[in-house]
Amino acid sequence: MMLVLSSATGGVEDLPPFDAGALISQWGIAPLPLVVTVWATGLYVVGVLALRRRGDSWPVGRSIAWGVGMLAFYLATSSGLAAYDTVLLSAHMVQHMVLSMVVPLSLALGAPVTLALRTLPRRPRGWLLAVLHSRLAKVLGFPPLTFGLYVISPWALYFSGWYEASLRSTYVHEMMHVHLVVVGALFFWPIVGVDPLPGRVAHPFRVLLTVMTLPFHAFLGVTIMGQKTLLGGDWYPALHDGPLGAWLPDPFEDQRLAGGILWGAGDLVGVVFFVVLFAQWVRSSMKEAEREDRRLDRLERQERLAATEVTAPDRAPSE
């Protein structure tokens, strides 16, 4: 396996043509994503095992969702996709969608906050509860704010100097990855509603927020596809004029492909999320109906008992 040393400052080596094999052969060792993945996965597994040791259950689906999220995060930041994310705008756009949608949604479905509250010792659990009830958490969990950040930040990324700066600076590039994950988490976590976080709203509003994101992704994708100027300034033409030009596609064609990926992937993940929310809504409604049935049954039994006590004849004690 060939490990590629590529930096956002222009130190891109002579990469082979981008294909499925390159995703594996151009794998890189990125220390920070590796540490984050190992620790996050390990702590989650420790929590699940702690629950099982004391006889409590933990939904398998949540563990699978967490594993999918961490795997997607590591693939997006360490596989060949990361090696080409400053070479092909289309590769970057796949990475963008994975980090901003797939990773936050999967991790939110894993319910790590709930797992932590059920397994942490008393004092750390108190600290976590204090954070969850803090004013900052309430502000960051305010749905209109998180929705605005989620739909506006991609426009700010691609239609300002931010994206070109991320191509030329390793630090800005890595901070862009952090930004995509954090903003996606702020938006998805309260809407998924599995963890007890501030900002959780009723299921109809969750579905509405999800549906409202679809036109923004589509419009941004179409806008990028129709741009007459290149995102990133002269970065991609300069690469095309170098040794990679033997196989690199035309920058405008790659940009149109990137816009199509943003449009199609955004709608696809949005529809999947809509299905998840709808299933949660149905399940919640069924549980609420069951609770109401039990309440009515208890009320009916109490009324029958009261009626029996009122109508029962008084019996004098036998002499």
Rank of each mutant, 00 (worst) to 15 (best):
Q255D: 04
W235S: 06
P249H: 12
Q227M: 10
L248I: 08
D250H: 15
W235R: 13
T229R: 14
L230V: 10
A258Y: 09
G242W: 15
G232T: 09
P237Y: 04
W247I: 08
A246V: 12
A246L: 13
P237V: 13
L239T: 03
W235E: 01
W247A: 14
P251N: 03
K228P: 02
G233F: 12
L230R: 04
F252S: 00
A238Y: 05
G259N: 06
P249F: 11
Y236Q: 02
D254W: 05
R256A: 09
G242I: 14
D241A: 12
P243Y: 06
P243W: 02
G260S: 06
W247P: 00
A238V: 12
L248R: 00
Q255M: 14
G233Q: 09
L239K: 00
K228T: 13
L239G: 00
D254V: 05
G242M: 12
E253M: 14
W235Q: 05
R256T: 04
Q255H: 15
G260Q: 03
L248N: 00
G242Q: 10
E253D: 12
Y236L: 12
L257K: 07
T229E: 05
I261C: 07
G245N: 02
D250L: 14
L231Q: 09
D234M: 07
F252C: 02
D250E: 15
K228N: 08
F252W: 09
P251L: 08
A258P: 08
L239C: 02
P249L: 10
L239R: 01
K228I: 07
P243F: 02
E253H: 12
G245Q: 01
I261K: 03
T229W: 08
Y236D: 01
G260H: 07
P249A: 07
G233K: 13
K228Y: 09
G259K: 02
H240C: 06
L244Y: 00
T229H: 14
Y236R: 06
P251S: 13
L248A: 05
L244S: 04
R256N: 04
W247G: 11
A246C: 09
D250A: 15
G233P: 04
K228W: 06
K228G: 10
G233S: 14
G260C: 05
H240T: 10
A246I: 15
E253I: 14
Y236P: 03
A238C: 10
W235V: 13
P237C: 11
P237M: 14
P249E: 11
H240Q: 13
D234Y: 10
H240G: 04
D254N: 04
G232M: 06
A258W: 12
W235N: 03
I261V: 14
R256F: 08
L230T: 06
G233H: 05
T229F: 10
I261Y: 00
D241P: 01
G233R: 14
L231V: 07
L230G: 01
L257I: 11
D254T: 10
P237I: 07
L230F: 03
D234F: 05
W235H: 11
L248G: 01
L248W: 01
L231W: 11
R256D: 04
W235M: 08
L230W: 02
D254Q: 06
L231K: 08
D241W: 04
Y236K: 05
L244G: 01
